[in-house]
Amino acid sequence: MANTNTQVIYGLYDDEEIMLKAIRKANDLHLNIMDVYTPFPVHGLDPLLGLSESRLHIAGFIYGMLGTLTAFLGMTWIFTKDWPVIFGGKPYWSVPAFIPITFELTVLFAAIGMTFTFYIVCGLGPGVTNEMLDDRITDDKFCIAFDESEVNSSEVESFLSSTGASEINKKII
């Protein structure tokens, strides 16, 4: 995500409702939106941008299963093969006693795996610096951005000004 040398033309809106209307208009005009930046998650945005549902939860399930197997098979191997010890007259392979740790590792693996996957697929992490189009996007501005090489600039400018963008700018990021 770091510097990609993209010439971006973007409009800033003062309210998410105006921005959502503008995106609907852009879809009618078949303008190719590069990205939308908002200070908080705006609901109703994903279908307008044609974003498919995140598959993070599927990844989470797989990581969780990995944790389940690690814990359960690990304890099984240790207590039946590697170093069997009798505790309190119970069998070596005492399944009920393995459940708590199996559960904890399931949760642990799912949480760590999902969180790291999230940062990796988003290209975020310690030391990453991404250029902001405008510093107020994390405050109170809602931004629709277009890649200038993919759209007709004058058409985009007139679209942005007619849909109520309070500012229209260009920037290379």
Binding site: M1, T38, D46, E53, L56, H57, L124, P126
Partner: peptide, 28 residues
Amino acid sequence: SFGWVGSAKHWQRWEALSLVLAGIATPL
């Protein structure tokens, strides 16, 4: 801030992650 920009897709994933983490933190 890990280079956060507030992109729509990032917010979508962020919400998905929060929801699943909440789901597994509850039994935890």
